[in-house]
């Protein structure tokens, strides 16, 4: 994947100008200081944002994004948040148990802790197919043990997919077996 950006701006604020971003590794980490445009780059790479001057070759066919915010429907249950993307109830329950949310399926989403919501957002992407996975701060709010098991679960669920991770946590590099880094 090669993204050549002539100019990307939000109003007057220029985020990228004459930059080329190569995603050549199987596990790529995008890192940089706060406000440097990591999430913006992830949105451009994952085709969520095409409002820029430039060219993009080798685009993903079915990009899948784990957003930095959990983006769950707070008024419905944990299980319904998964049923939003699949009609296979048993598969949804299986994924819930894999992320440690077994028995929580009928709880309303707004009753969950921050870490549980993050695991639910991760469970949702595990139900979807993808050739390139884009993870924005994927392990935010999870405790140490959970970080390891959830990152392993993601890698095992998408063994042949390319994964692009945005993170400022050093440990994520190891947890996701990162083999290339884009520094902004």
């Amino acid at each position: 994947m090669k993204l050549e950006v002539k100019r990307k701006a939000f109003g007057e604020k220029v985020v990228f100008e004459d930059r080329i971003f190569w995603v050549y590794g199987r596990r790529t980490l995008i890192k940089g200081p706060s406000g440097s445009g990591k999430t913006t780059l992830l949105r451009m790479l994952s085709l969520l944002d095409d409002d820029y001057e430039g060219t993009y070759s080798g685009k993903p066919r079915s990009p899948l994004v784990l957003f930095q915010e959990d983006r769950l429907s707070m008024k419905i249950s944990v299980l319904s948040n998964l049923m939003m993307v699949t009609s296979e109830r048993d598969r949804a329950l299986d994924v819930l148990s894999k992320v440690g949310l077994a028995g929580e399926e009928m709880r309303k989403c707004h009753e969950l802790s921050g870490g549980m919501r993050r695991r639910l957002a991760i469970a949702r992407i595990l139900l979807l197919p993808s050739d390139v996975l884009f993870l924005d701060e994927p392990l935010r709010g999870l405790d140490e043990g959970m970080k390891e098991s959830v990152s392993r679960l993601i890698l095992d669920t998408f063994p042949s997919s390319r994964i692009v991770v945005v993170s400022h946590e050093e440990e994520d590099q190891e947890l996701f077996d990162i083999d290339s880094i884009i520094s902004i």
Binding site: R71, S73, M84, V85, L128
Partner: peptide, 15 residues
């Protein structure tokens, strides 16, 4: 944000 997520996950109109 939820609508954008639903679109990016190709959630059907009925769902």
């Amino acid at each position: 944000d939820l609508l954008e997520a639903a679109s990016s996950y190709h959630v059907s109109a009925i769902r």
